[in-house]
Nucleic acid binder design. Structure first.
Lengths: 335, 335
DNA sequence: TGGATTCACTAGAACGATCTAGCCATCTGA
DNA sequence: TCAGATGGCTAGATCGTTCTAGTGAATCCA
């Protein structure tokens, strides 16, 4: 069924009339072989259809050049990050081993699978593990926490500056002329408190009243919060994230309010939801791919021997689409 | 920084005062050790925090009990399947190695990474590789094509019965009383032709006129197609998939038509989009998790020596939500 | 010219597991 | 009592690589 077994270094060596070690040298592009032999070995390998066995390779070499990335199957968002991580790793000549956090497969399982594979460093996307456990892993190999900055001192972190994101949001809306701006917050979701506080500070700094409405990270919470906006109407809303913003918009639409003519709505994350052609939600982008690349860089830097854990913070930016506009004159009660 | 190196079999053996081989036996739960020693070895392993090195283990043993799964980072849908695959593999005592198809990382790369890891079988989600290439891999190890049934005779396939899905859709709508039903098709997307043909047949079989509108797999196509529904109005629409359905709905909504009061809309895939709380799209579910489990089963059965490649076909089912209802009397011109 | 250096290459020992063959008791049965 | 089975255990080979320590020849430099 399986045909004959896959060719090994030994087979190539025999075919090319050299030693195993030399074939290894050639395959790794390591110095120590003449151009002529190099060519001969390459040809033999090609002819036999030789592919190095990564298990054996990883086993033997102290350096595996393997980065472990854990992600959650329930966060479509994570897929984009994985994508970017592959690209970044490739540039530096590293490989990536994936392990998913799934139903009935807790994060600890995912991480341990990566360790068993011989990863040299771990990149955990929005890890939910306790600081203790993370520190435990970090004692063995470098660990980078991505999109979570309070994972403790023992691990590196790469995250996004929530305060700056909210500042950009408020700045954008005020520069359009909005003054009655509400924030539908994320309840007790990760980063929600930071964004809530930032909103408060940024509004006060501009002499505006910080108007916070309890919400949550999904559409339901946004819709619920949206109901409170019908009586005392703001001219603009900053939502905790895109899905929350969708809920808010749906709720406004239900009572005949138009976006952005009557109310501007700004999301957060620049997720696929914001990009939907019929949504076109203006949003604050954390630039996840950029952060992913930074996390990979950070992990590799740690491996190749730069100092203690560091905490990188990326700056978000505004992605302008169709849901924010200057306030209409009629919805502006007084100057 | 990295503390001391991880413990090996040898370390455990010394600690327990036995041979490496015996520790191996105990760790694998293989016969050949007394209960007393078994306990002693387990304790020593525990104390040292020993975890078997999967690289070494995989290298040596002919059986790796490793299934390779390739998925695409751009298909949020695939994540659900991965999730289900993990669960199914665990039940049969297999592990799963993931490899993503990402930007700048073609499917062939993903597959080869899995082969290098020593996977015993491959499960490819909606593979886009040519029949030739698939056959090439299939000559080496069992390959299961998931969600694609025309991958050739050399590979196993587990897919969903598109005709049955469309039959269920048409059945559902006609049983509600609809007779003027349109199908917004998927253009040249995978499975689009099958569903288009099935729609035609099912409508004809019921003495109804098969009304097909060219569409596509994303919102844009749905919106475009929706415009054609404004003049000659159907009472119900079967969309190629959920995203297409969302576009159709958006387009209807733009001209003041309500769903489902004026027009019923039925999606396909039962994706996360259909489940959004403010969408509540009725949809045909392919039951991806079930299919994933079937694919895992199939791969393992092949490995453990059942005959030639087989082609399994799952039956989809209806997930009823809020976008389908009986036609309103006024939108029903004549009996 | 002759010692040092460089270059192309090789033999053999790792890496950390599993597997095969075999050893030494103890048990069985005639 | 002794050949044969059985159960518990071990030594050593092995998987396919990479790494270390060399070897022999050519080259360099004074």
């Amino acid at each position: 069924m399986t045909g004959k077994r896959r060719p090994t270094l030994m087979d190539v060596a025999e075919a090319a009339g050299v030693s195993r070690a030399l074939v290894s040298i050639v395959m790794r592009d390591a110095p120590g072989a003449s151009d002529a032999t190099r060519r001969r070995v390459q040809e033999a390998a090609q002819a036999l259809g030789y592919r190095p066995d990564s298990r054996a390779r990883l086993l033997r070499s102290s350096r595996t050049r393997l980065l472990g990335v854990s992600f959650s199957t329930s966060q479509p968002f994570h897929a984009e990050i994985v994508d970017a991580a592959y690209a970044a790793a490739q540039v530096r000549g590293y490989e990536i081993a994936l392990s998913a956090v799934a139903n009935g497969r807790p994060e600890s399982r995912a991480v341990e699978a990566l360790l068993d594979l011989g990863c040299e460093a771990l990149i955990l996307i929005s890890p939910t593990l306790g600081e203790q456990e993370l520190a435990g892993y970090a004692a063995r190999i470098p660990v980078v926490s991505l999109l979570r900055d309070d994972a403790g001192e023992s691990v590196d972190s790469v995250s996004s500056d929530d305060h700056a994101g909210i500042r950009i949001a408020v700045e954008h809306l005020t520069s359009l002329g909005h003054r009655r701006i509400a924030h539908v917050d994320g309840g007790d979701a990760v980063s929600a408190a930071q964004r809530r506080d930032a909103f408060r500070q940024e509004m006060l700094a501009r002499g505006l009243e910080p108007w916070n409405i309890p919400g949550g990270p999904y559409e339901e919470a946004g819709m619920e919060a949206g109901k409170q906006l019908r009586d005392k109407r703001p001219t603009a809303v900053v939502a905790f994230n895109d899905r929350c913003a969708l809920g808010v918009m749906e709720s406004l639409r239900a009572v005949g309010l138009r976006v952005p003519e009557d109310v501007s709505v700004l999301g957060y994350d620049d997720s696929q939801f914001a990009r939907l052609s019929y949504v076109q939600l203006s949003s604050i982008s954390q630039d996840a791919p950029l952060l992913a690349a930074a996390a990979v860089e950070r992990a590799i830097d740690r491996l190749e021997g730069s100092g203690p854990p560091a905490h990188l913070v990326g700056t978000p930016h505004l992605v302008l689409r169709q849901t924010t506009a200057p306030p209409s004159s009629k919805s502006q009660p007084n100057g």
